[in-house]
Design a binder for these strands. Structure first.
Lengths: 262, 262
DNA sequence: AGTGTACGTATACATCGTAAATATACGAAG
DNA sequence: CTTCGTATATTTACGATGTATACGTACACT
């Protein structure tokens, strides 16, 4: 029975090349494509398998299960971020965000990273909820390497700002919270309401109680607007001003400045 | 056969009172209980029905489907927030958060609302992801009334700070982003890692690449800490300082101050 | 008493994640 | 070339899920 591999009726001619069709990269990439195109709810094992010309169970070699696959999507997002950062650093130095009052290098670079992260998220709106449900549920050391490298990048910049470990950790949390929350807020209604030209009316606001909620009614049009990278940078600056004691211009310009004022 | 209700084999004695067993309140409350106890994944129609002593399909009278039920959970969270705010405002006036430099009333009250929202979220950690996946996906006017009232409350305070509609909307977005992001970050690892006394090691950090990621490795213990309402207030203050042009002390103390400086 | 209607049940189906066993194709050794 | 080990993909099957549809049943009102 085990021996009967060759001649019988089993083999088909077109089977050639069916061996190495899959890879973790291909699986994650097409999974992200499906999510981008049809939303998170459309991603099922069978669907993804079909998209790759493969049965559903074949995917379990490249992701331990559906949850692991979703974690893989988070990883894919952060790898895209790393691609962007690497490409931009190859072209030119970090851009100065504001020419009038020159910020320290760490601050400019932090803005740069935040901005690119935001742009990656906007490129995959349907995948963003995964950042809340999966990334934050994973216990840090089990997060994908790309995520850990992102943390490291930010922490290095904060150390260059002269913060000690505790202050850097606090600021890193504030950075993450702001970036994540900002992405969520900017993404709202952009996902399932892609075609609303007139903001106030098409949102069904006319049915909103007229005498109640007067401020909300007045501000609805403004609330539906998006601030883009400008608002992201403004809030980040405000938070950093609150977190970094002085201007954050480290006296020792580079390398190890291990002694912050306590 | 239809008539044979009385003596025969058909009716059971305990059927009395099976009529009004359910209500939207009861459904949402027990749904939230299930989620709090066993997590979001444990909430299924059949499970929730069983918890209420009812078939699964009975729930469809009180929620149009599973998604609507999850939206209902968000509503339940905001109704709990309103309960808390109402109860506290009945007991005493709004507490002064900082006695040294007295803040304007609107600012103190905004801190109060943010703090209570944060506390409600911490009381239902498993339900928090719904705030990202459901609440922000719903197009504002379709959000539950309790959510809209929350928006109104915040907008009123921002108007009292002297902001015009556009600035109030911007600040409201910043407020929402910070509050939401902060809750997410504080909640991380609190959900599925409830028993980690020694933070650095039990997180599996020892497997983290030792020579790479030195800053991350050094700051891991600090990163696992939680700042609670203190950190929430600090970041909110920083953001408000960036958003509100002057100190935000409205010249007309109370009531309608419709003319902000433009 | 009779009847309409609000409420809950019963049954059924497509789809989902995935465990287990099986078939197939390539690399290397004989 | 044959043969085998192993990496790869398929097949089959099972329980659970969301929900459409049809049906019973109990209360309110006349």
């Amino acid at each position: 029975m085990t021996r009967e591999t060759g001649q019988g009726a089993g083999r088909r001619a077109g089977d050639r090349g069916r061996y190495g069709r899959l890879s973790r990269e291909r699986v994650l990439a097409t999974a992200l494509e499906v999510v981008d195109r049809e939303g998170l709810g459309a991603l099922s094992m069978r669907r993804l398998g079909a998209e790759l010309g493969v049965e559903a169970m074949a995917l379990y070699r490249y992701a331990a299960g559906k949850e692991a696959l979703l974690d893989g999507l988070v990883e894919a997002l952060y790898m895209e971020l790393e691609d962007v950062l690497a490409a931009e650093s190859r072209e030119a130095g970090p851009p100065t965000v504001n020419a009038s009052r020159p910020s320290p290098a760490w601050r400019t670079e932090l803005h740069h990273i935040a901005r690119e992260t935001y742009l990656v998220a906007l490129r995959h709106p349907h995948a963003v909820p995964l950042l809340a449900t999966r990334m934050l549920a994973v216990p840090l050391a089990r997060r994908p390497p790309a995520v850990l490298r992102d943390h490291e990048r930010v922490l290095v910049l904060l150390q260059q700002a002269g913060l000690d470990d505790a202050a850097a950790a606090r600021t890193h949390r504030a950075y993450t919270a702001w970036l994540l929350g900002y992405v969520f807020v900017e993404l709202r209604a952009m996902v399932d309401a892609p075609d609303e030209s007139d903001p106030a009316f098409r949102l069904g606001l006319h049915r909103m109680s007229a005498q109640e909620l007067p401020r909300l009614r007045a501000a609805t049009a403004d609330l539906a607007e998006r601030e883009g990278t400008k608002g992201l940078a403004a809030g980040l600056d405000a938070l950093l001003d609150g977190c970094v004691p002085n201007g954050g211009d480290s006296p020792a310009a580079d390398g190890a400045a291990p002694g912050p004022p306590r």
